[in-house]
């Protein structure tokens, strides 16, 4: 369990170092994610401790959003000015994104027919 947490933190640290050294405008943990993915691919399996910690964190992912979400209070005045525009922008964009993604995926999936049939049931998930 502790090993797994250490692996995640080390990947994050290395990710931050990559960002610092390269100046690429990508968050450090994203590089950390890529790094861990490469490690898992090289290992060919997920060590139990890494899986335990990762699934624990991801199961409570929603909870981890709360402190940053409360930060909206700092912007209450701005939101009261622009709330309608922000709401419309989010609604329209979310709708269009859903439509475009579903259409593209379905269209390409049809061209690529057999691949879809190979997908079986799946493992437990991320919340």
């Amino acid at each position: 369990m502790l090993n797994g947490f250490l692996v995640l933190l080390l990947c994050q640290l290395l990710g931050e170092l990559v960002v610092l050294a390269s100046g690429v405008p990508v968050p450090g943990p994203v590089f950390g994610m890529i790094l861990l993915l490469l490690v898992l691919i090289a290992f060919k399996k997920t060590p139990k401790s890494v899986r335990l910690v990762s699934e624990g964190l991801l199961r409570h992912l929603a909870f981890l959003y709360v402190p940053a979400g409360v930060g909206l209070m700092v912007h209450l005045e701005m939101i009261s000015h622009y709330w309608l525009a922000i709401l419309v922008a989010l609604l329209v964009s979310t709708f269009v994104t859903l439509v475009v993604t579903a259409l593209v995926f379905r269209l390409l999936g049809r061209l690529n027919g057999p691949a879809k049939g190979e997908i079986g049931d799946s493992s437990e998930g991320v919340k």
Binding site: F5, L8, C11, P29, G32, R51, L58
Partner: peptide, 10 residues
């Protein structure tokens, strides 16, 4: 949130 992002690799 940082380690959780890394955990998405799993």
């Amino acid at each position: 949130l940082g380690p959780a992002t890394v955990a998405l690799a799993v």
